[in-house]
């Protein structure tokens, strides 16, 4: 048989696909978190960053988007396939089954993964397609050029408490998913031994926590600024943008 086909059909080939697509997605999540954390700097930073990403050449921007989409699709399809095979491997369940070692994060992978899928769809509709709330008219003057005010958009998005709670809860699940996923990745690719196991497990948990705390800090900061009067973010800027948007609409 063609060795490439044999690889794709084998259990280990499918596991490599899970690990490699997971590697890309886990890396993306960390980068995304670091990018978002610029909200704690003056509005100019995140707006300039967002503008730079948005104005990448179409081929590059869509190339990255489609590559990420491909990774998501591969990760989900292979996960479904592997899960079906796993269920078929034990058609008769035990009457009494105990768990000795498996962690909650490992056992919850299909469920956290499924919820994350729904979250990704919601998140894209929320901030990329912007069809849940209308954020089309948020102008920002970046060195004389009018660009989209991402700072205000994020602030407005998370000022709805139900949105923030939802994001925070899902980021908790993402933390669980990463804790098992990142450590599994090394095992699946064969990049670890008994000496490194404990260190890599801790590193994976730390990775999950860093991503969780990084992401969650944003809705928490918005809620504190908006509802508790603890000014972690620039509310005046948000109000100024909204006033500007209103005056522009009136002038038209």
């Amino acid at each position: 048989m063609n060795p490439f086909l044999q690889l794709l059909r084998s259990s280990l080939g499918k596991k490599y696909l899970m690990a490699l697509s997971g590697f890309v997605l886990a890396g993306f999540v960390l980068g995304h978190m670091a990018g978002n954390a610029q909200i704690f700097l003056p509005p100019e930073y995140i707006n300039a960053y967002g503008h730079k990403l948005q104005s990448l050449p179409g081929v590059v921007l869509w190339g990255i988007r489609l590559f990420l989409l491909l990774c998501v699709v591969v990760h989900i399809c292979v996960a479904v396939l592997l899960t079906i095979e796993n269920r078929l491997a034990r058609p008769d369940r035990y009457e009494k089954e105990a768990t000795v070692e498996a962690t909650i994060s490992s056992r919850a992978m299909p469920y956290t993964g499924l919820i994350l899928l729904f979250f990704i769809i919601f998140h894209l509709l929320h901030y990329t397609v912007r069809s849940i709330y209308d954020y089309s008219n948020l102008p920002y003057n970046l060195h004389g050029e009018t660009v989209h005010d991402i700072y205000t958009m994020m602030y407005l998005g998370f000022s709805h408490w139900w949105v923030s709670i939802f994001y925070i809860a899902v980021m908790g699940l993402l933390c669980l998913h990463l804790t098992h996923g990142v450590s599994s990745m090394f095992q699946t690719m064969g990049w670890r031994n008994e000496k490194w196991r404990a260190i890599l497990d801790k590193a994976a948990a730390a990775y999950g926590w860093v991503v969780f705390l990084g992401f969650v800090s944003i809705p928490v900061a918005v809620l504190l600024t908006e509802h508790a009067g603890i000014a972690l973010l620039d509310k005046e800027h948000v109000e100024a943008t909204l006033a500007l948007a209103k005056s522009l609409t009136l002038n038209q």
Binding site: S11, K15, E85, N86, A102, S106, S184, Q187, T188
Partner: peptide, 8 residues
């Protein structure tokens, strides 16, 4: 089945 790194 396939290993999902439970460690059981």
């Amino acid at each position: 089945g396939n290993c999902t790194n439970y460690g059981e």
